[in-house]
């Protein structure tokens, strides 16, 4: 199969990355709930259980704290575990091991030990699974020094970033949006072990009127908006940070200096949210002087995600909301 027409879904791309890493390094293994015969609650591990062995694709009991802790211990002892937590909401069960243990060990112990661990987990709303199965938790993890946090928005990035996350000697939280698993991306997924470094923001598309920074699924929604508004003569630069911690601000500064307008979009609640960090850094930088419009942000409402579809939709930014905000910002500030 030729490299330039491989349109994989994100689930397939992630599976491919894990397969490559497991072929490359015997110390890579996966553990999580229902990742074996079942193939993962969202089908991400798929056939890996059959391709490798039950010892390298380990089905666990429902014990999030235990399995993340076991992964930390294995990571300290020469292995490179990839933990799948079935829904990001249940990282709450494992938060001690994530935030108090994995994140702190290298620094706190004076560099004596380190934790090469990847924790992959699906997040986000849109499935009608209500408040305890729908959260976007980017902000939680971004606020813990010692964790790297990756939020892929498309299959090609997901594959390259996951390979780098597995190589990384530090704990990496890899947050995958459920609604993106089954859809192919806009770009083909390169064959082989092509890595994308963590901590490099991506300019998805360039324009001169507005800088739009979005994370995860909001990148996809924003892209649609940018394409649509291009027809109206509004040209948008869309930036996907991809790694929200550490955060690469340079392309954002450069773009703001060109466009003079900034719109930031995230799915999670606005209060204390990650995007506020982007706004703060622009505000503190010399690019701030280039702004000709107030900065605008769109985020989830400060509520738990409701069940009924008509309520759930209202809780997070939709394409129409982004469209209205982007047009407003460009039209009202000249």
């Amino acid at each position: 199969m030729s490299t330039d027409n491989r349109m994989l879904t994100m689930a397939e791309a992630l599976r491919e990355a894990m397969g490559i890493a497991m072929d490359e390094r015997p110390e890579v293994f996966i553990l999580g709930e229902d990742i074996g015969i079942y193939g993962g609650a969202f089908g991400v591990t798929g056939d890996l259980y059959h391709r490798f062995s039950p010892e390298r694709v380990i089905d666990t009991p429902i014990s999030e704290l235990g399995i993340v802790g076991a992964a930390v211990g294995a990571a300290l002892s020469g292995m490179r575990p990839i933990v799948e937590i079935q829904f990001s909401d249940f990282t709450a069960q494992a938060m001690d091991q994530i935030a108090n243990q994995a994140a702190k060990i290298h620094f706190m112990l004076g560099g004596a030990l380190h934790v090469p661990l990847v924790l992959r987990t699906p997040q986000g709303s849109g499935t009608g699974a209500a408040a305890q199965h729908s959260q976007n938790l980017e902000t939680w993890f971004a606020n813990v020094p010692g964790l790297k946090v990756v939020v892929p928005s498309n299959p090609a990035d997901a594959k390259g970033l996951l390979l780098s996350a597995i190589d990384d000697p530090n704990p990496v939280i890899f947050l995958e949006h459920k609604l993106l698993y089954k859809i192919p991306g806009r770009d083909p997924v390169p064959e082989g072990a092509i890595r994308i470094p963590l901590g490099v923001s991506k300019v998805v598309r360039e324009g001169k009127d507005l800088t739009l920074v979005a994370t995860g699924i909001m990148v996809n929604k924003s892209f649609e908006v940018a394409e649509k508004l291009a027809a109206e003569g509004i040209s948008i630069t869309l930036i996907d940070p991809r790694t929200i911690s550490p955060l690469d601000m340079n392309p954002i500064f450069e773009s703001v200096e060109k466009t003079g307008r900034l719109l930031v979009v995230q799915e999670g609640p606005s209060h204390g949210g990650f995007i506020n960090e982007v706004i703060a850094r622009v505000s503190e930088s010399s690019s701030f002087g280039s702004l000709i419009a107030p900065i605008k942000r769109l985020a989830g409402m400060n509520i738990p995600i409701p069940y009924a579809p008509q309520l759930e939709k209202a809780a997070v930014p939709q394409i129409e909301d982004i469209e209205v905000a982007a047009r407003e910002l460009v039209k009202s500030w000249r």
């Binding site: 009608g128 408040a131 305890q132 738990p304 069940y307 309520l311």
Partner: peptide, 10 residues
């Protein structure tokens, strides 16, 4: 029971 906010699981 939950005004449509909880659904089957709540």
């Amino acid at each position: 029971y939950c005004g449509g906010r909880g659904g089957s699981m709540h």
